[in-house]
Structures are given as C-alpha cells and as structure tokens.
Amino acid sequence: MEWTKLETADQLENIKNKKGYSLIFKHSTRCSISMMAKRRFEMDWDSLPADMPLYFLDLIKHRDISNQIAQDFSVYHESPQMLLIKDGECVLDQSHSSISVNEAVSVMA
C-alpha cells in the first residue's frame, strides 16, 4: 500500500465527495509519538482493503488543510490522528495510542 499526500483543498473535497471509504492520517513530523503511531499503523495496514485510498497529511506543512478537516468532519484537531471517512462522513476518529487498523477494519465490517 502507499500513501497519497494530502496537500490541497481540492483533494479534501474529492475525499468528501467519494463514495465508499477513505482514510486520512494526520501526522506531525516534529512529534515522536506521531512517528510511533505512523510506524505502528504501517505495520498493520495490509489488513485494510488493497484499493482503499490512504491519505497522509503533514500538518506542519498543511495546517490549513488540517483545520479544514476538523471543520468539515466535525472533529477536534489532534496529532497524530486517523480519520476513517465513508461517503463523506467521518465514521471513526482516533488519536495517539488509540490509532488502530484493526478498529478501522471492524468499523468497515
């Protein structure tokens, strides 16, 4: 699997309009906790559907997109944070050590 960098408002709009699931991982490149959560997520991401879009947001570079995510999906900004989006709605919001591929898979089941 591969990350798609989330860098524009247009990409975010496409995620909101997409049918089915997408996943957004918000990451701070300055935070060791965020690095550990990302590494743990990547170790398990093969459990996700192979065709599922995975978006990676560097929130240090793109804080405006992070703020838009919080507003559009009615979530509190955290870092690291994983959002599972289905048909334009956030169906799972996890942060820090709660980030779990298994939980995302169970929500999709």
Results as ranks from 00 to 15, higher is better:
residue 2 E to Y: 13
residue 3 W to S: 02
residue 4 T to D: 13
residue 7 E to G: 02
residue 7 E to D: 04
residue 9 A to R: 12
residue 10 D to Q: 15
residue 12 L to G: 01
residue 13 E to D: 11
residue 15 I to D: 00
residue 16 K to Q: 15
residue 17 N to H: 13
residue 18 K to F: 02
residue 19 K to I: 06
residue 20 G to N: 13
residue 20 G to T: 11
residue 20 G to W: 09
residue 20 G to I: 08
residue 21 Y to M: 01
residue 22 S to F: 00
residue 22 S to H: 00
residue 23 L to D: 01
residue 23 L to S: 01
residue 23 L to H: 02
residue 26 K to I: 05
residue 28 S to C: 08
residue 29 T to S: 13
residue 30 R to V: 02
residue 30 R to N: 14
residue 32 S to F: 09
residue 33 I to E: 12
residue 36 M to C: 07
residue 37 A to Y: 08
residue 38 K to V: 01
residue 38 K to P: 02
residue 39 R to P: 02
residue 42 E to V: 01
residue 42 E to W: 09
residue 47 S to A: 15
residue 47 S to F: 14
residue 48 L to T: 03
residue 52 M to G: 09
residue 53 P to C: 03
residue 55 Y to G: 00
residue 56 F to T: 03
residue 57 L to S: 06
residue 59 L to C: 03
residue 61 K to A: 12
residue 61 K to N: 14
residue 61 K to Y: 07
residue 62 H to K: 08
residue 63 R to F: 12
residue 63 R to A: 07
residue 64 D to V: 01
residue 67 N to F: 12
residue 68 Q to A: 15
residue 70 A to M: 04
residue 71 Q to W: 12
residue 72 D to G: 01
residue 73 F to E: 03
residue 74 S to C: 09
residue 76 Y to M: 15
residue 76 Y to D: 12
residue 77 H to N: 13
residue 78 E to M: 10
residue 78 E to Y: 10
residue 78 E to A: 11
residue 82 M to C: 13
residue 82 M to F: 06
residue 83 L to M: 07
residue 86 K to A: 04
residue 87 D to M: 04
residue 88 G to Q: 03
residue 89 E to I: 00
residue 92 L to F: 09
residue 92 L to C: 07
residue 92 L to H: 08
residue 93 D to T: 06
residue 93 D to P: 04
residue 95 S to D: 11
residue 97 S to F: 10
residue 98 S to Y: 14
residue 99 I to K: 03
residue 99 I to V: 03
residue 100 S to K: 07
residue 101 V to N: 11
residue 101 V to H: 09
residue 101 V to Y: 11
residue 103 E to G: 04
residue 104 A to P: 02
residue 105 V to R: 05
residue 105 V to M: 06
residue 108 M to N: 14
